[in-house]
Design a protein around this nucleic acid. Structure first.
Lengths: 239, 239
DNA sequence: CGAAGCATTGAAGTGCGTCAACAATCGTGG
DNA sequence: CCACGATTGTTGACGCACTTCAATGCTTCG
């Protein structure tokens, strides 16, 4: 449930019990979605934002020719489109990568919240700024890292983020994406994504089967990725 | 001066004269910087954010091997590190690409502002969300567009953004980056960036000399770029 | 006026893409 | 429960967009 979200917030920021109550009051309803469902379409007018309680979502941007780039992956505890609160429409689709449980948060309530609790306003502003930091790291990957390093980096990032919400343990987590979807995150073709996975396997850095990702050699993987988690801002912040 | 900033805001959002006064009160001092100056270093603790009054800035991320990716370019009217207000440190450097005039905005004043004027808090939240939208478009470019299309897209984006603050006219604007810096925006080598410029020239889409970029055929350039400016959110918003 | 940075060009190499085929797995209906 | 089509994963051969290396002239500016 929403505990993942609170856990993620509290990893970085103090939240009082009164503030927690206000946060819990944000949710108007809960929805379940099947895999491969289009949850938010780019451009449509928004009155709600979606908090992901369980499962995986992706932000997808498409070119006219059909090429797709995933710009961020979301896991339990994330807001998938909190930026829609200020932007009013998205510049990308939001698509389920697995079965999902999603909490609906009306923008009216967010507006009230930011009026009554300016500090929580800054907390959620902070949350969207972390998304932007993730975007920048992905841009660095797409522009400068090799396919191998890029994929390793993604696996490292997801490990850290899932660990925060208790969905990774002993170097293992569920990874529901197909190789096609993975390739769309990395700016690669499916064929090359496949070969890159195999190279990571060959080097005994990971295992990937039955939608389960196992990191066999964390140091090694982080080395290939040149992974430095500071861009995830996991230390304590005062707002 | 700060008029560029207000002009950019008002293109998208109503700002009352009282709010304008509050905004003008943000600036504590003004600085001048030479080209190639490191203005903010990644990781250092921040108590101010920087509003660019004139010139160009870049957000740069570096890998240990020396590879550099620029994740966003900033022009007059932009906040270069408004996200530093909530993040407290940056995951990237901020570097001047030309001579710059920069207004310093203490975080204390931003905190006051967001407490007293929750709506302006949302306005600046909105501003950082547009930066994130630009990041996503760049990720799409880096992941899916060819070198030619990517460069064309960047030139289109900058034209629109400069036009908003009155720094582009009749398809022309000042473009102070060297080819090296341009290549670092696009995830290309300098050599290939050079060849790509030449191809855009050969197709009579642009001219580029003496740091002046001229778009000769806007339709043509936008076609090559598959440019759609909706990701810049230039329509009116209610917050 | 010399040195350093910048733009340009050519030749050769490679990481990743494309095309095509096939195997494995999955979901669904009969 | 099996049949069967569709999706996913895998492999090989080949091609190309972009990189690498290296050289040369062109600016710019102490």
């Amino acid at each position: 449930m929403i505990t993942a979200h609170l856990r993620k917030l509290r990893k970085r920021i103090e939240i009082s019990s009164e503030e927690e109550r206000a946060i819990r009051g944000l949710v108007s309803e809960t929805r379940r979605c099947r895999p491969d469902e289009l949850v938010v379409r780019a451009g449509e007018e928004l009155n709600n934002s979606l908090m992901l309680l369980d499962g995986w979502l992706a932000r997808c941007k498409d070119l006219p020719g059909g090429e797709r780039q995933v710009t961020e992956l979301h896991v339990a505890g994330d807001f998938a489109d909190l930026h829609g609160f200020t932007l009013k429409r998205l510049d990308h689709d939001v698509v389920t990568m697995s079965e999902c449980t999603i909490a609906v948060v009306p923008h009216d309530r967010l507006r009230e919240l930011t009026n009554k609790h300016p500090r929580l306003g800054r907390v959620y502003w902070f949350a969207t700024n972390i998304d932007a930091a993730i975007h920048r790291e992905w841009a660095l990957s797409l522009g400068q890292r090799s396919a191998l390093s890029r994929m390793a980096h993604l696996f490292c990032e997801l490990y850290v983020r899932l660990d925060v919400v208790g969905q990774a343990s002993r170097g293992r987590y569920e990874f529901p994406l197909t190789q096609r979807e993975l390739s769309e995150c990395l700016g690669l073709t499916v064929v090359h994504a496949n070969r890159t996975i195999q190279e990571l396997r060959r080097r005994s850095l990971i295992e990937l089967e039955n939608r389960q990702l196992t990191i066999l050699d964390r140091r090694g993987l982080e080395g290939v990725a040149q992974f430095d988690p500071t861009y995830l801002y996991l230390d304590k912040h005062v707002l």
